[in-house]
Design a protein around this nucleic acid. Structure first.
Lengths: 210, 210
DNA sequence: ATGCTCACCAACCGATCGGTCAGTAAGCGC
DNA sequence: GCGCTTACTGACCGATCGGTTGGTGAGCAT
């Protein structure tokens, strides 16, 4: 980027090349995965030449990991803003689901990126540098539920509840576009209603009282 | 493969080249995805040369889709053997979870393959030729739960229950190897116990009676 | 024996991959 | 003015990609 006097008014409002590379890489990697995207594609999308990408990042792998780390970081920073004090079990669960769901749809690319990482072979993920970041975020969520652990039925641990909530949200996010087509024998509600059904299911189970 | 008289006794017990290509391709595609695997790698793993792979499959894409279709087919054939007659809601749910979980771990590569497909961008999946196969299998499972729909609480549909069961199993399968490492604030049980906890949670909810 | 099909392979093709290199131009402390 | 760093580029590199071609040899029907 060349901030001449004439162009500066326009250029200043633009992001820097580095920022654009990271942003475009996130979208591309999320859509097609590490091996499905070439550095040249990223460079073209960011409006720079390929060599410039290698100026900012030593290798393709390094770029990929920076993008991943940024996505995990965004998750953690959003989690900071989640306030659950003075909430009972149902309140916490509802707020947690609402926050998580909102985050997923606000950052679909980052979400898909992490999901992709989670879908690879587990042995690879275990050695991945993003693994501790994912671990830390998960532990924080478990911690939020730990404070109301005494309200849970015996044998139901906060970690179990956290995993169930995240599973449902992530799976729901990933298959939302499929719901309309996926249903011949049955039908599913749309997102806000579905979320309410999940909470209801979590709190009271599925069985009809007799 | 050249079945000479001397080698025939050994060769006959071996699979054909075509079968080996499909089998090795499934493992490799499951571990590294479509773009992460080259035809040469598949050929080497199957013990044939690259051109031979293109003799059996016109393009890399065709090989990939054959492998995917085979994985979906295996799911359907396993589902055929699932017998749920004369089971009440809890019984059906338990058998369904048990069957699904067993299938996932019996065919981890096929499972990871489908999971990978599910993790890609939804617009791509919608146009994928495996989409109707996935759809059909899902509908069959919903159908199994439809027969006990009257035992469900109001507002809880069979499709919802099916999706929750599949979500939990798939997510559990995918993150099993991570459980031990993922837990600082809490801990999760191992597979059979975890499955029992899920069923308990589904039937009765998480909230302690007061 | 001849002719055809099928399974298989070595060698090759153009394109693209990740990555390097030499060089240019701007900003900045001195 | 003068170095030094930083951002950036076009041209290039060897390797590998998906895919093709020409050909060999076994099995089999006629």
């Amino acid at each position: 980027m060349v901030p001449t006097l004439l162009a500066s008014a326009y250029e200043i409002s633009e992001k820097s090349a580095l920022t654009r590379i990271l942003a475009e890489a996130e979208v591309l990697f999320a859509e097609r995965g590490f091996d499905g995207v070439s550095i040249n594609e990223v460079a073209l999308a960011a409006g720079v030449c390929k060599a410039n990408v290698f100026h900012h990042f030593a290798t393709k792998q390094e770029l990929y990991e920076r993008v991943l780390a940024h996505a995990c970081d965004a998750f953690g920073r959003s989690l900071d803003a989640l306030e659950l004090k003075e909430q009972d079990l149902a309140g916490r669960l509802w707020r947690l689901m609402e926050w998580h769901n909102a985050f997923l749809y606000q950052r679909p690319h980052g979400t898909r990126l992490i999901l992709r990482e989670l879908t690879g072979s587990p042995t690879v993920l275990e050695r991945s540098p993003v693994f501790p970041l994912i671990q830390r975020n998960f532990d924080r969520i478990v911690g939020l539920l730990n404070e109301v652990a005494d309200k849970l039925r015996e044998g139901i641990s906060p970690a179990l509840v956290a995993k169930v909530v995240l599973s449902l949200n992530l799976f729901g996010f990933q298959t939302e576009r499929l719901n309309e087509k996926l249903m011949v024998a049955g039908s599913l509600a749309t997102r806000p209603e579905l979320q309410r059904q999940w909470l209801d299911l979590l709190l009271h189970g599925i069985e009809a009282p007799n």
